[in-house]
């Protein structure tokens, strides 16, 4: 018994540290980067963290193929290049990729639907890791299932790689609506709600009491402009992930930040503007100013035009 109590204490300490890092990222922007130069631009622009990957979602979508964890050499270079926390993605259920990412010293692991899933039934048991995990969700049940597995941060899935914010909005509104609904239920009704949400009763009760998730709730998936970031923050997001929105030019072509000064400037202007918009999300005067300073926006792909089977958000459950 003392051993069990000790294990429980260790688990609680571990979860507090994981959520602690998520707390530090609140109000900030986490940017997808594919090389050292992009990582430096992100840090210089004021990103709170970078997500190291080989292809941003827009490219994965356009090029197809199996999308896997980024090369360790790329992740190590990016860790060396910046002083802010570095995140990286593992495939859904691919705990061996996660073990490698933890070994590399990645600060947050994104078990992400953007990569090709490695397991059709099981997500990673995230309690077994010292490194915190972030997972995507479209609704409250999905968010709570991920938290039950040990996720220390939830992000709306949205529809990655589109530059269309509509699904990020839909998922944030859905989660908020379901949380609000729980707060008015009686104790007895919460058991039935847990059954309907397909989520553990204890977590459902925590949400009913607090009116919010027990871990930070960030937003991702299609955020491309300062106005998009402000929209998601006003809808209740606690921080913003920007994937393809900063470094992409056309659908599958990134801005050439290494060789083209004008394209580098464009990426810098987008990155800075989204950072400022995320801090001042409820100040239209500042939002108007920063929106004016942006010198371009990714072309984008309307999410409504994507066929059901091509959607990334339906991966995971």
């Amino acid at each position: 018994m003392p051993e069990q109590a000790e294990n429980k204490k260790v688990a609680q300490t571990s979860l507090r540290l994981k959520i602690g890092l998520a707390e530090m990222l609140k109000g900030g922007v986490i940017m997808d980067v594919m090389n050292v130069e992009q990582a430096r631009i992100a840090e210089e622009a004021g990103a709170v963290s970078v997500m190291a990957l080989e292809r941003v979602p827009a490219m994965i979508r356009a090029e197809g193929g199996v999308a896997r964890m980024a090369k360790p050499s790329l992740i190590k270079q990016i860790i060396q290049a910046v002083s802010i926390p570095v995140m990286a993605k593992a495939r859904i259920g691919h705990f061996a990729e996660a073990q490698i990412l933890q070994q590399l010293g990645v600060d947050f692991i994104d078990e992400s639907e953007v990569l090709t899933p490695a397991d059709e039934t099981h997500h990673i048991d995230k309690h077994g890791f010292k490194t915190p995990f972030v997972c995507g969700a479209r609704n409250l049940g999905e968010a709570l299932r991920r938290i039950a597995e040990g996720a220390a941060m939830i992000r709306t899935k949205g529809e990655a790689g589109t530059g269309d914010v509509v699904h990020a909005v839909k998922h944030m509104r859905q989660i908020t609506k379901e949380m609000k609904a729980l707060t008015v239920l009686s104790e007895q009704e919460l058991y039935a709600a847990a059954k309907e949400l397909q989520a553990p009763y204890e977590l459902v009760r925590m949400v009913a009491e607090a009116g919010k998730l027990p871990v930070p709730n960030f937003s991702a998936g299609g955020i491309a402009t300062p106005a998009d970031a402000a929209l998601m923050m006003q809808l209740g997001a606690e921080a913003i992930f920007v994937g393809s929105g900063i470094f992409m030019k056309e659908r599958a072509t990134p801005l050439d930040v290494e060789n083209d000064a004008r394209e580098r400037d464009e990426a810098v202007s987008r990155a800075k503007a989204i950072v400022i918009a995320t801090t001042h999300y409820n100040d239209p005067k500042i939002l108007a100013e920063v929106s004016e300073q942006v010198t371009g926006t990714m072309k984008g792909l309307a999410a409504a035009a994507i066929e059901e089977k091509e959607l990334l958000q339906t991966r995971g459950w």
């Binding site: 707390e23 530090m24 990222l25 609140k26 109000g27 900030g28 840090e43 210089e44 622009a45 004021g46 990103a47 709170v48 963290s49 002083s83 802010i84 926390p85 800075k272 950072v275 400022i276 801090t279």
Partner: peptide
């Protein structure tokens, strides 16, 4: 508060 000092510093300067 706690957070990323680089982010805060850039913001204060800008």
């Amino acid at each position: 508060p706690g957070g990323e000092s680089t982010t805060m510093l850039k913001f204060l300067e800008r």
